Amino acid sequence: MGKVYIVGAGPGDPELITIKALKCIQKADVIMYDRLVNKELLSYAKEGADLIYCGKLPNYHTMKQETINKFLVKYAKAGKTVVRLKGGDPYVFGRGGEEAEYVAKHQIPFEVVPGITASIAASSYSGIPLTQRNISGNVTILTGHRVNEENHLLNNLSFLKAADTLCIYMGIGNIETIQAQLLKADKSEQTPVAFVEWASTDKQRTIISSIEKMAHDVNEKEIENPCLIIVGEVVKFHSKLNWFEDVPSRSMIVEAGASQ
């Protein structure tokens, strides 16, 4: 019997991977990796390791989740050390829990190795602290995907009202609905919003907007996934704490609406 390691590869900057995750990559017989995993990390795989791409785009899956689950079990039963390499953290909108549950159901030994998730990376690399004394005492992490489902947190207006800082994953495709729900929750139209594309990579771009203009700016500035949306007064710190994008050759900062 082999073993499955469900491993977080971090947000994109290969130097942000943990030592434990790197050791897993180095000893793996099989690495099943996602689209947002930095391909540089695959260079640490041992000679002869099988590298299997499982990438997913919005509305298009190279490999269905059910197939991924079955391959994890198949390779482990063949005595292989299998690394399921996932962008960010496996247990934060990474479906790592589903994979772990499936592997456990088939009595396969497994471990889960955490990784830096997109909200933490986007916060640090854009100069936006998610918490700040006297400004933000709580952080809510939620998905903008399937926002029309009845039990989605964005449909809970009292919940949104209580949130000081919101970190929204996978929200670009439903930006109009997200904007409408924030306004229904009596969030000020002038509440700052940050869109952080490709956080921690050399393609990072931070666009500053507001709840009032957020849907317009997504279209006007052609904002695309992967993108982390941060909503709250802490976004104002971007102008003075941004360190990453100020480095020459890094991506530009676009202050949406600044010239309007």
Rank of each mutant, 00 (worst) to 15 (best):
A194E: 02
I116R: 04
N151V: 01
I141F: 09
E101H: 09
Q181W: 04
E197V: 02
E111C: 06
G173E: 11
T131D: 12
K187W: 01
Q179Y: 09
E197R: 02
L153E: 08
M170N: 06
K187Q: 01
F93Y: 15
L182Q: 05
F110M: 15
F159L: 11
V112L: 09
Q204Y: 06
G97Y: 06
D164V: 03
A104W: 03
S136G: 08
E197S: 09
E149A: 00
S200E: 10
L157W: 02
Q190T: 15
I116C: 07
P192E: 14
S200W: 07
F93T: 08
M170H: 00
Q179C: 00
Q107C: 14
N138Q: 01
A162T: 06
A180L: 11
I141S: 00
I175N: 03
G96F: 08
K187F: 06
N156V: 01
C167Y: 08
A194N: 07
L160A: 05
K203N: 09
L166A: 01
I128P: 04
L153Q: 04
Q190S: 15
Q204D: 11
C167L: 11
N138W: 00
Q107Y: 14
T165A: 11
R95A: 09
A118P: 14
D89A: 05
V92T: 10
E98G: 12
Q204L: 12
Q132S: 14
E99S: 06
T117N: 15
